[in-house]
Design a protein around this nucleic acid. Structure first.
Length: 352
DNA sequence: CTAGGGTTAG
C-alpha cells in the first residue's frame, strides 16, 4: 500500500510536467505573436534608414544584421535587391554571406535556386560560393551534383581546399559511404596537398561509431595522431560511447585515461556514456563513482546522467539509493522527467 | 570580410 501511494505521487509529478510543457508552448506561441507584431515596425525603421542613406547601403545593412533565421520571402527579396543594386555593386563576398545565412536556416533548395539565378545574371561563382553549393547538394543527398560542382570549380581555375574536401566528406558520411570518405581523405585530399584538420575526421568517426564499427574509429584516431591532427573531446567522446555500447568497458576506460594524459578534459558527454555503459553492465557502483568524480571536477551532470543511474539502481533492487539520487537531482535543480518517474514507478511496482 | 563537422537516457 505505501508503495502504491508513492506511485501515485510520482504519477502526479508527471502530470505536473505535462502542464508545465503546455505553459511553455503557450509562452512560445506568445513569443511568435509578439515577433509578428513588431515586424511592421522593423520594416518601417528599415525604410527610414534606407531613405536616410539614399538607398545605397540598405542590402549591406541587411546582410550585416538581418540574416539570423531569415525567412524565404525576405531572402528572395534581399537577393533581388542585391541583383538590382549598382551603388555599391554587390560582391561575391556579399552573395556568400547571403547564401550561408540562408543555408544556416537549412533552406538548401532555396540557396541552390538563388545560386542559379545569380549565374543567370552573369555573376560567376568563386571557391566560397561553390563550397556552399556543394554543402547544399550534400545536405539534400545529391552527391552527384556536389561532385559536378567540384568539376566546375576546377574549370574556373580554383583548387579545392581543406574546407571543400571536408564539406564533400561530410556529404559522403551523411549517406553512410564511409569507405569512400576515408579514400577521399587518404588519396584525393592528401595528394592535392590539403592538410586534414579536426573537421575532417569528425563526421567519419561519428558515422563509424554509429554503425558499430568502433574498431575502425580507433584506427582512425591513430591515423589522426600520425597526421598531427589533435583529436578533440568530442572525437574521444564518440569513440568512448561506441566502446561502451559494444560493452568494451575496459577499452573505454583506457581511452578515457588516455585523453587525460594528453590534457584533453572530458565533458558531460564523456561521463554520461561511461556511466550508462557501466550501468548497463550492472556495475552501478562504478557508475556512481564516476558521478561523484564528475561532480568533484565541477562537470555539471545532466538529467541523462541521473536517469541512467536511477534506472540501473532500480533494476538492481536498490530503490533506497535510487530515491536518494532522485532527491539529489532535485536539490541540484534538475527537473526529473517521465523517464525518471518511469524508472521509479517500475521499481515500486516490482517491490510489492 | 565570405565557405565545412561531430557526441548523451526508459
Amino acid at each position: 500500500m505505501p508503495n502504491m501511494f508513492a506511485c501515485l505521487v510520482y504519477i502526479q509529478q508527471i502530470l505536473v510536467l505535462e502542464v508545465d510543457d503546455s505553459h511553455n508552448d503557450c509562452a512560445l506561441r506568445k513569443g511568435r505573436m509578439i515577433g509578428r507584431l513588431i515586424q511592421p515596425q522593423r520594416i518601417a525603421l528599415f525604410s527610414a534608414f534606407s531613405v536616410l542613406s539614399n538607398g545605397t547601403v540598405s542590402y549591406k545593412e541587411r546582410l550585416r544584421s538581418g540574416l539570423v533565421g531569415i525567412k524565404k520571402d525576405d531572402a528572395v527579396d534581399l537577393f533581388e535587391s542585391m541583383v538590382r543594386c549598382r551603388h555599391p555593386l554587390p560582391s561575391l563576398v556579399d552573395f556568400s554571406r547571403l547564401f550561408s545565412g540562408i543555408a544556416r536556416t537549412k533552406q538548401y533548395d532555396l540557396v541552390l535556386h538563388l545560386c542559379k539565378k545569380m549565374e543567370l545574371q552573369g555573376i560567376t561563382h568563386n571557391n566560397y560560393t561553390l563550397t556552399i553549393v556543394i554543402n547544399c547538394y550534400c545536405r539534400r543527398r545529391k552527391l552527384g551534383f556536389a561532385f559536378s560542382a567540384i568539376g566546375k570549380m576546377l574549370k574556373l581555375g580554383y583548387e579545392p581546399n581543406t574546407v571543400t574536401f571536408n564539406t564533400l566528406l561530410n556529404g559522403l558520411c551523411l549517406e553512410g559511404r564511409v569507405s569512400e570518405a576515408v579514400e577521399l581523405v587518404d588519396h584525393r585530399m592528401m595528394d592535392n596537398g590539403c592538410q586534414p584538420d579536426e573537421a575532417t575526421y569528425g563526421p567519419v568517426t561519428n558515422r563509424m561509431c554509429k554503425s558499430w564499427n568502433t574498431a575502425s574509429a580507433l584506427d582512425l584516431l591513430r591515423k589522426m595522431e600520425d597526421r598531427k591532427v589533435k583529436p578533440q573531446v568530442v572525437t574521444y567522446s564518440m569513440i568512448i560511447d561506441g566502446l561502451c555500447k559494444d560493452g568494451s568497458l575496459d577499452d573505454a576506460l583506457r581511452l578515457f585515461n588516455e585523453m587525460e594524459t594528453k590534457g584533453i578534459k572530458p565533458n558531460v558527454f564523456t561521463y554520461n556514456s561511461l556511466i550508462r555503459g557501466f550501468c548497463n553492465a550492472g556495475r552501478w557502483d562504478d557508475g556512481a563513482q564516476l558521478l561523484r568524480d564528475m561532480i568533484t571536477r565541477e562537470i555539471t551532470p545532466y538529467i541523462v546522467t541521473f536517469n541512467a543511474l536511477i534506472d540501473s539502481l532500480v533494476k538492481e533492487g536498490k530503490l533506497t539509493e535510487a530515491k536518494e539520487l532522485y532527491n539529489e537531482m532535485i536539490t541540484r535543480g534538475i527537473d526529473p522527467d517521465t523517464i525518471t518517474y518511469n524508472s521509479l514507478i517500475y521499481g515500486l511496482c516490482m517491490l510489492r
